Computed example of a mutant assay.
Amino acid sequence: MTAPPRKVIGQVVRWVLMIGFACVFLYPFAWLVAASLKPRGEVFDNKLIPDTVVWGNYVQVWQELPLINWVLNSIIIAGLAATLVTLSSSMIAFGFAYFRFPGRTVLFRLLLASMMLPGAVTLIPNYLIWKYLGFLGSNVPLWGATLFGSAFYIFLMRQFYLSLPRDLFEAARVDGCSYFGLFRRIAFPLALPSALIVFLFEFQASWQNFTGPLIYLNFGRIEDFTVPLGIAYAMTKYSPTAGGHGDYQFVMVASLVVTLPLLIIFAFAQKYFIQGIASTGLKG
Rank of each mutant, 00 (worst) to 15 (best):
I124Y: 09
L260R: 01
Y153M: 13
N139C: 15
L192K: 14
G220S: 04
L182W: 01
F148M: 08
V140L: 12
L136H: 08
L182K: 08
L128R: 05
N218R: 13
T259I: 05
I186A: 11
F180I: 15
G176C: 02
V140R: 10
F203G: 02
L156Q: 15
L133R: 08
A195V: 00
A187E: 13
I129E: 08
F201S: 02
S138C: 05
L147Q: 03
V198W: 02
Y248V: 01
L133Y: 04
A191G: 09
T259M: 10
L162E: 14
Y233E: 01
G212P: 03
Y127C: 02
F203S: 00
P189M: 06
L136D: 08
L168W: 12
V121Y: 07
I222M: 13
A195H: 06
N139Q: 15
T241P: 00
S178Q: 02
L182R: 03
I124E: 10
S178D: 10
L182I: 09
P165V: 13
F180V: 15
Y161L: 12
G220A: 09
P125Q: 02
V257D: 01
N218G: 11
T236C: 06
L192M: 10
L192S: 06
L133V: 07
G181E: 12
Y153V: 15
L142W: 03
S206V: 03
V258R: 01
G119A: 10
F148L: 10
F180M: 10
F250H: 03
L162M: 15
K131M: 13
S138L: 10
Y132W: 13
P118W: 04
A242F: 15
A191F: 04
Y233T: 11
A145F: 04
T211W: 06
P240Y: 09
A120Q: 15
M252Y: 05
G246I: 06
L123H: 11
T226A: 02
T259W: 00
L182V: 08
G246D: 01
L190F: 07
D175F: 11
W130G: 07
F188T: 05
P193R: 07
F160K: 06
G244V: 01
I129Q: 11
G246A: 00
L256W: 00
Y127R: 13
G144E: 09
D247P: 02
P118L: 09
F188P: 02
T241S: 14
L190V: 05
G176T: 03
